[in-house]
Design a binder for these strands. Structure first.
Ligand SMILES: [Mn+2]
Ligand SMILES: [Mn+2]
Ligand SMILES: [Zn+2]
Ligand SMILES: [Zn+2]
Lengths: 138, 138
DNA sequence: CTATATTTGCAACATTATTGCATAAATGAA
DNA sequence: TTCATTTATGCAATAATGTTGCAAATATAG
């Protein structure tokens, strides 16, 4: 059953360990939304806090997950789908935080928006943090 | 010299204290950019950490300052200019984080952008976090 | 000036971030 | 398969940040 996550680790050139497989399962299982550390901990079962911290860093470096800016001040991560735009030439990336259920949804590309910065500024990355009420809560 | 900041506190219906005046001076002095707690502490001189924490909360509640989402995970605050769109009917608000000097600029309104959310979602707030290189660093 | 409401400073505690280091485990090569 | 090497893990320790309670100090209204 973990052949899928196994392959993801191989592609990311990360050693295959039990903990990494478990963490990856968690992300794959909620690939539509971003997770806080607390939410990850609730899902992953027994674990070491520091190992989780470092594994998140590794996953991020290997571009398996990405940090999510959703307007809350919490550090959230989401699984990078293979068409995730976050790591494709720094394309625009939108996320939606629901005020009710606190879920953060990944809305994907927003490259159709016209963003301009003041003259002499150069733009590398665009992060759009939307807040409101999601479909499930409406 | 502190007549200006005095007036701001009065308008916000906050009692005038020495610490509040000092903190407000700091914000007024860098009203074009957002400040981290560390940056505030470096500018304000001798102070109590908890008092700063609570005064920031008061200022925010009184809408003298607002939290800034700039794509970093740091908690930043910026002075609300009287035409600051953040507190005018939740209008869009853009900030720019410079990768070089780490300054966060307030870019103001972006209400001309066309933002759409999936059907059945309702949108309350739009925060646009731009990253790149600022004019001074270019 | 006095009474009342608010603010401040300090202690205490919670949560999160971060590094060092010894041990355990994974991997590639023999 | 075994072994050597590299990497990951678990635990201790520390730093940074967030948060509340409470008594003393201060601001403000009357
Ligand atoms: Mn995403
Ligand atoms: Mn602003
Ligand atoms: Zn919701
Ligand atoms: Zn700059």
């Amino acid at each position: 059953m973990s052949e899928h996550t196994r392959q993801i680790l191989v592609r990311g050139r990360l050693r295959i360990t039990d903990f990494r497989l478990r963490l990856l399962e968690v992300f794959v299982a909620s690939s539509h939304s971003a997770l806080t550390q607390k939410e990850i901990e609730a899902r992953i079962g027994a674990h070491d806090r520091i190992t989780l911290y470092r594994t998140l860093k590794s996953f991020e470096a290997a571009q398996l997950i990405h940090q999510v800016v959703d307007g809350s001040l919490e550090n959230k991560y989401a699984f990078c789908l293979h068409d995730c735009p976050e790591h494709r030439a720094q394309e625009e990336h939108a996320h939606f935080l629901c005020n009710q259920c606190k879920t953060t949804y990944c809305l994907g590309s927003i490259s159709d928006l016209a963003i301009t910065v003041p003259s002499n500024y150069s733009l590398d990355k665009v992060q759009l943090a939307l807040t409101g009420t999601c479909s499930a809560c409406n």
